[in-house]
Amino acid sequence: MKIKQSTIVKPLPSEELISKHEKFWRLKLPEVFLDFIKTYNGVEVEEATFECNARNYSIERFLCMLDDIENHPKGIYDIDVVVSQIGERLTDNEDLLGAEVLPIASIFAGDFVCLDFRENKDKPLVCVWSHEESGEFEPVFYKIADNFTEFLEIL
């Protein structure tokens, strides 16, 4: 995976912002993912491809965490913004408070790479959310890796 350093979204997320998001989502993000987002918040990548479900995917950019979404030019790439746009298509539980699946990167053609906490709140899987196959409260996911570290190694 080739990082485009000039595309890192500043300011980088603070511990306070991360804690606020984790509380809202009712999730504890994995340390490896936190280290990544604290360094490469919202970064665009080159040559970041992977195979899943007999398809090849290409990551356009990782999502970011921002404190001031409305006034930031990259606000549309904030994780909360993406969750608010597709949230009802990420879960089959209409009564869910918080999140079970969290988008972390946009993929060419409208899909997202996500952290999937549904089976294990402490060790989320990494999956692809298929926008074309998913409906409201009928999400379709395909597993990519057992964890974020393994996912990065695939790229």
Rank of each mutant, 00 (worst) to 15 (best):
5 Q>S: 13
8 I>V: 07
9 V>N: 08
11 P>E: 12
15 E>Y: 07
18 I>G: 03
19 S>E: 15
19 S>R: 12
21 H>S: 12
21 H>W: 14
22 E>L: 03
24 F>P: 02
25 W>N: 01
26 R>N: 00
26 R>S: 05
29 L>S: 05
29 L>Y: 08
30 P>T: 01
30 P>C: 08
30 P>W: 04
31 E>I: 03
33 F>T: 08
35 D>H: 05
37 I>P: 00
38 K>A: 05
38 K>E: 04
40 Y>S: 00
41 N>S: 02
41 N>R: 00
41 N>Q: 06
42 G>P: 07
43 V>F: 07
49 T>H: 13
49 T>R: 13
50 F>W: 13
50 F>E: 06
51 E>Q: 11
52 C>S: 12
52 C>L: 03
54 A>Q: 15
55 R>Y: 14
57 Y>I: 07
57 Y>P: 14
58 S>E: 15
58 S>F: 10
58 S>P: 05
62 F>Y: 10
63 L>K: 01
64 C>Q: 08
70 E>K: 06
72 H>R: 00
73 P>E: 11
80 D>I: 08
83 V>H: 01
83 V>S: 01
86 I>N: 09
86 I>S: 06
89 R>S: 13
90 L>P: 00
96 L>Q: 13
98 G>E: 03
99 A>K: 04
100 E>T: 01
102 L>H: 02
102 L>T: 04
102 L>K: 00
109 A>L: 14
110 G>W: 01
110 G>L: 00
112 F>H: 09
115 L>V: 02
116 D>V: 03
116 D>T: 10
119 E>T: 08
119 E>V: 04
119 E>H: 04
122 D>V: 05
124 P>R: 05
127 C>S: 12
127 C>R: 06
129 W>L: 07
131 H>G: 03
133 E>W: 00
133 E>Y: 05
134 S>I: 07
138 E>L: 13
138 E>M: 15
139 P>W: 13
142 Y>C: 06
142 Y>E: 13
142 Y>P: 02
143 K>T: 15
145 A>R: 11
146 D>P: 12
148 F>M: 11
148 F>T: 12
149 T>D: 09
149 T>G: 15
